[in-house]
Design a protein around this nucleic acid. Structure first.
Length: 439
RNA sequence: CGGGGAGUAGCUCAGACUGGUAGAGCAUCGCGUUUGGGACGCGAGGGUCGCAGGUUCAAAUCCUGUCUCCCCGACCA
């Protein structure tokens, strides 16, 4: 993509409404624009990141045998009356009346709808287990939306639902999602720590929040350093095998948010040098809630004895749009965003320092071609701007690598590669620069 | 939902107390000088001062109402 053609409205100054760094940077980097309180448009750069995150989530869900479908955003009130949540959910649920006076709502979550779907088609234990998910916009009419996409009213969420015959089956599904979540966050360059959680309005008695550590996180968290140091992706796990031992290694170590924190237990269980107290952001939440919905809504299957039993259910959410903000909270510096490679909107930012200079234009354009041929996503700054502006903007949007083509380097036949995360620069021939970036 | 703050040019803000017909920096456009970390000079364009009433000869400014946004708290992916 050529920068001269890309819709990237960056801001030099910090808009006054943005208080936290991820919100400020998302506005400044031209990723989002606010439409109304807690509701945002995603501009091209932001949307690229959102889709990258969504794709990682999708791949990991698929790998766990979770099947993607898509449910509507607007739901009928009836099924929520059936579950008993129509009144429980309160004003946070956006209620709508259609032209015929039918009561509808913009879904804040989908337990009722998915239960309705599965109930209609699943009759026997032979049809179980089932793991289903979708990635879809939700609306929760928060009293106080804030922090940009971190607490928006409209947000993109991946929500999965498990259906099993019995508790053991449900536990297997829960464990599968537990492990899958760890992998999902790790692939985004995040350290996510599962912590025992309250179940809130979803209900149920087994639940974990996934918290990532970030200096500007909303809640205070306490955990064993050992949990942070684990390299999740290097641990090979068989998702179809028994995952309980894996889950146990995580849940046996101390990890708690401030509301669940027990200082005495913390000090008793964790050696002093491993005690971490930090800030955290909730980026996922998993629940086992048994037959709460299946019972209320009559979602039963015939078991081996031919008896009708309510299905055992769980639900599993990842805040996809929140993750965009959360990753920035965890990955930024003075100059701007520092994207982990896996979610970066482009792999490389190519800067032509002197547009109009024949040698620079040729070298930059050749480099642009080669990088793209090598399969990289490149943002090519071909705009006629001063060097300072180009550097500042490229740092702001945080692409993992910058390739700088300028008259100074070309004199000796080199281009410069800058690693955004480390700040290190390397002068290399165009060929070795290419090789360096395509390993 | 309780408490607080703010709406003036695309962005950041001044002007309001003390009413007299709107300003700066940045951004944009033109010209020139610059050109490896957010340049400089000259010139230009751009605002129903959130909206609706009221007071007044006169309202961005005073009064009333209303809408929106932000912050703190209780609630949440």
């Amino acid at each position: 993509m050529r920068l001269s053609q890309f819709f990237l409205p960056t801001l030099k100054e910090v808009p006054s409404e943005a208080q936290i760094v991820s919100h400020q940077l998302m506005l400044r980097a031209g990723m989002i624009r606010q439409s109304s309180a807690g509701i945002y448009s995603w501009l091209p750069l932001g949307y690229r990141v959102l889709r990258k995150i969504e794709q990682i989530v999708r791949e990991e869900q698929d790998a766990a045998g979770c099947q993607e479908l898509l449910m509507p955003t607007i739901q009928p009130a009836d099924i929520w009356r059936e579950s008993g949540r129509y009144d429980d959910y309160g004003k946070e649920m956006l209620r709508i009346t259609d032209r015929h006076g039918r009561e509808m709502l913009y879904g804040p979550t989908n337990e009722e709808l998915i239960t309705e779907i599965v109930k209609a088609s699943v009759r026997s234990y032979r049809d179980l287990p089932k793991l289903l998910y979708h990635v879809q916009w939700k609306f929760r009419d928060e009293v106080r939306p804030r922090f940009g996409v971190m607490r928006g009213r409209e947000f993109l969420m991946k929500d999965s639902y498990s259906f099993d015959l019995d508790r053991e089956g449900a536990r297997r599904a829960y464990n599968k999602m537990f492990v899958t979540y760890l992998r999902t966050y790790a692939r985004m360059g995040l350290k996510a720590i599962p912590m025992q959680a309250d179940t809130g309005p979803i209900g149920g008695d087994l639940s974990h929040e996934f918290i990532i550590l970030a200096q500007t996180g909303e809640s205070e968290v306490f955990c064993d350093r050992e949990l942070i140091e684990r390299d999740v992706l290097s641990e090979a796990v068989d998702l179809d095998g028994d995952l309980q031992p894996v889950v146990d290694t995580w849940t046996s170590r101390y990890a708690a948010t401030d509301e669940m924190h027990e200082p005495t237990r913390f000090e008793a269980e964790v050696p002093e040098d491993r005690r971490v107290s930090a800030r955290g952001i909730e980026v996922g939440h998993i629940f086992y809630f048994g037959t709460k919905y299946s019972e209320a809504m009559g979602a039963t299957v015939a078991n081996q004895e031919g008896l009708q039993v309510p299905m055992e259910m769980g639900s599993y959410g990842i805040g996809v749009s929140r993750l965009v903000g959360a990753i920035i909270e965890a990955c930024h510096d003075e100059a701007g965003i520092v994207w982990p490679r896996s979610v970066a909107p482009f792999d490389v930012g190519l800067i032509n320092l002197k547009v109009g200079d024949l040698a620079c234009d040729k070298a930059a354009s050749d480099m642009y071609q080669s990088l793209r041929l090598a399969g990289l996503d490149v943002l090519y700054d071909d705009a006629d701007e001063r060097a300072g502006v180009k550097f500042a903007n490229m740092d702001l949007i945080g692409l993992p690598f910058q390739v700088v083509v300028g008259p100074r380097g070309l004199k000796t036949g080199v281009v410069e590669i800058k690693n955004r995360a480390t700040g290190k620069r390397y002068e290399l021939s165009p060929e070795s620069a290419l090789a360096h970036l395509t390993v």
